[in-house]
Amino acid sequence: MTVISSRPSSPNSNDAPRLITAPPLLRAKGLRKTYGRIVAVDEVSLEVYPGEVMGIVGESGSGKSTVLRLLNLEEPADVGAYTLDIPDYAGVNLFTLERFARRMVQIQHIGIVYQNPYLGLRMRYTSSGNVAERLLITGERRFSTLREAARSWLAASEFPLDRMDDPPRKLSGGMQQRVQLAKAIALKPRVLLLDEPTTGLDVSVQALVLDTLKRLQRELHLAMVLVSHDLGVIRTLADRVLVMRGGRVIESGLTDQVLEDPQDAYTQQLVHAKL
């Protein structure tokens, strides 16, 4: 090995995909979001293919959670386009939809799991009721169908079924995340958004939840976007990763490449800051 000049290599740029011919499921282009004078997200673009997990890493305030809120259609971007390859809406910038249509796309095609279960669950309903509520929204009224759906999605999330009628507030953190997950996938969305889904859980519980996520990703062929500051979680789940700083994407690549051969100075620091 030899040390040479102090000049960095010219940055690599990739060709467009050639072997993969199917279109991406999720496509966001040039997203910008400001709050007053604060630019939370700027020039963020990403494409996620069916069956793929895209990780987003960055420190607090880097804009990664704002990106997730935009992708969940909680608020529109100031600038930029967001499309999903779904029936009736292919090619439509979802930010331009009026409120009702936006809400329907969100309910039927996008699932989300928050770090804080209070954001995603009604803590005093039963767990099964939390899941069944998703089907109620779409007009299902038969009790037996609702009950069976709640049971099967909770089972798919590896939730202990003998606890299915307990309210989430009586459950452990790991179980609450499984209820959120069952609720998120109950309408078979094409996109699953995960905001620090295992942060705050015990390490062993975290491993189990990650494993459930990995299995569901494989079986349901979802496009997943996973926001986490935990590089171990990202390495376990994500195929590709975006590194965000100050609202912008400063590096992107295959997860192992970004973690083992980071090109950007900040990413090099971030990766090596890991204990």
Binding site: N14, D15, A16, R18, L19, I20, E52, R240, G253
Partner: peptide, 12 residues
């Protein structure tokens, strides 16, 4: 395909 320049999704 050129493995040096291939898109990340193609490598995956």
């Amino acid at each position: 395909i050129d493995l040096v320049r291939a898109a990340d999704v193609d490598i995956a």
